[in-house]
Amino acid sequence: MRILMVTLAATLLAGCAGSAMNDARTQTPYKTLTSDKPEKVVAQCVQFAWQDEAVFGVDAGAYLQPGKKGGSTVYTRSAESFVDVTSNAGGTALSYYAKHDDFVAKRRLAALATCL
């Protein structure tokens, strides 16, 4: 039952976050990065890093879903920050988007960078 509730909550969050992410994707990413690691490994690492309560406190939620154009997307509640992780010829490409250019966005970028 608990798994069903978590799945339902994640589905609802994905629906709400979807339009915010689509709007953000029409803009230039906050930061574009690359990695030699496989896409799935990087995406799971970012999700885990963004869930660190010692760093992000109560706002340490991070969700992983299939990407809009392949790959994966890791996002936070209300899509305040998200990263599209896709495979390319040289490894993995990451497009990081942040709603605000503040210390939280920079902290999430730093956590993301540990996964490269």
Rank of each mutant, 00 (worst) to 15 (best):
F103C: 08
R25P: 07
Q47A: 04
T73P: 02
A54H: 09
V41Q: 15
G71A: 06
T86Q: 10
A105D: 04
W50T: 04
V46Q: 00
V85L: 02
T32K: 05
V6N: 14
G15K: 02
K40P: 02
M1W: 15
A79V: 15
A79D: 12
K31W: 05
V55I: 12
E39Y: 08
T73Q: 06
L64M: 07
V104R: 05
V74M: 00
A10K: 03
M1L: 09
N22K: 12
L33G: 02
F82I: 09
L13C: 10
Y75P: 01
V46D: 01
T28S: 06
L109C: 01
G67W: 07
S95P: 04
F103M: 12
L112H: 01
T86W: 05
K106W: 12
S35A: 04
A17W: 11
Q65C: 10
A110D: 11
S78K: 15
T26M: 02
S95G: 03
L8D: 13
A54P: 03
A24R: 08
V104G: 03
S95F: 02
W50G: 00
D59Y: 13
K68G: 06
V58M: 10
K69P: 08
D23T: 15
Q65R: 12
K69G: 08
T28A: 04
V55L: 07
T26W: 05
Y63Q: 11
T73I: 15
R108V: 04
S78R: 15
V104Y: 07
A20T: 14
V104D: 13
M21T: 13
L12E: 06
A105K: 01
K40H: 15
M5P: 02
L109R: 01
A14W: 12
S87P: 00
K99R: 14
F82Y: 10
A24N: 07
K40S: 15
G61Y: 13
